[in-house]
Computed example of a mutant assay.
Amino acid sequence: MPRSGAEARRRLQQAALELYRELGFEQTTTAEIAARAGVNERTFFRHFPDKREVLFDGEADMRAALTREIADAPDGLRPFDVLLRAFRTAGRILEDNRSFCEPRLKIIAVTPALRERDLAKAAWLTEGVAEALRQRGVPDRLAGLAAHTGWAAFHQAAQDWIDDPSQGLDAHLARAFDDLHALSGTVPPAQARSDSR
C-alpha cells in the first residue's frame, strides 16, 4: 500500500498507463486503475478529477516553468531565443520523465478523447507562453504567433525524441528551432517565380 500521497499518485499514473495499453483508455475504469495501484477508488479521486487527467498531471508545473524562464531570460534576446531557452527547461522535465512520456504520447495518439484534451491543454500552455512574452514587451499579435510557433516546434522535437532517442531532446529542440529560422529565411519557390516576372 502506498505510504505517501506522492507515492500513491505515481502508482496511480503507472497503473493507468499499464491498463490503457492493455485494455484501451475507453475500456479502463477508475476502479481498475485504483485496484492496480493498490488503493481505493476514493484515493484515485483525491488525486485526479477523472481518468483523463492521470495523463496530464504536471501541466501546471510545465506552464509555470515555461513562464518563469521567459520572465527570467536576459534582456535583449529575440522572442524565439527566449522561447528556445524556456522550452529547453521544459525539455529537461520531459527527459526526467521519459518512462512516463513515451507511452503517454502513444496512448494519446490513438485515443480521440485524449487528443481533444491534449489540444485543450496545449492551448492553455500556449496562452501562458504568449502572456509571458507580452509581459516582456512583445506586441500582442507577435506574442501569440511566437507562442504557437514555438509550441509547434517543441511538440515536433518531443515527437522526434520519442522516435529517435539516440539524441537528447535538447538536440531535437535545437534542430526544430534551426528549421524555423531556415524557413523564415527561405523564399517559397512559387513566390520566387512570380517575383522574377
Results as ranks from 00 to 15, higher is better:
18 E>I: 14
18 E>R: 10
18 E>M: 08
19 L>Y: 04
19 L>W: 00
19 L>G: 02
20 Y>Q: 11
20 Y>P: 00
20 Y>T: 09
21 R>V: 15
21 R>E: 15
21 R>G: 10
22 E>Q: 11
23 L>N: 14
25 F>S: 11
26 E>M: 09
27 Q>K: 07
28 T>L: 07
30 T>G: 00
31 A>C: 04
31 A>Q: 13
31 A>H: 08
31 A>L: 01
32 E>N: 12
33 I>A: 11
33 I>D: 01
34 A>F: 00
35 A>T: 15
38 G>C: 08
39 V>M: 03
40 N>R: 02
41 E>T: 07
43 T>E: 13
43 T>Y: 01
46 R>M: 06
46 R>N: 12
47 H>C: 12
48 F>E: 03
51 K>F: 08
52 R>C: 04
52 R>W: 03
53 E>W: 11
53 E>T: 15
55 L>K: 02
55 L>A: 03
56 F>L: 10
57 D>M: 15
57 D>T: 14
58 G>T: 08
59 E>G: 13
61 D>K: 14
62 M>G: 09
63 R>L: 00
63 R>G: 07
65 A>N: 05
65 A>Q: 13
66 L>H: 02
66 L>D: 04
67 T>W: 11
68 R>W: 01
70 I>W: 08
71 A>G: 14
71 A>T: 13
72 D>K: 10
73 A>S: 02
73 A>Y: 07
74 P>Q: 02
75 D>I: 00
77 L>D: 02
77 L>K: 08
78 R>I: 10
78 R>W: 01
80 F>P: 11
81 D>G: 03
81 D>A: 01
82 V>E: 06
82 V>N: 04
82 V>K: 02
82 V>D: 02
85 R>M: 06
87 F>L: 05
88 R>Y: 11
88 R>D: 06
90 A>F: 09
90 A>C: 12
91 G>N: 12
94 L>Q: 12
95 E>L: 05
96 D>R: 14
96 D>K: 12
96 D>F: 05
96 D>Y: 12
99 S>R: 15
99 S>P: 08
100 F>V: 09
101 C>G: 06
102 E>A: 15
102 E>I: 15
103 P>N: 11
106 K>H: 09
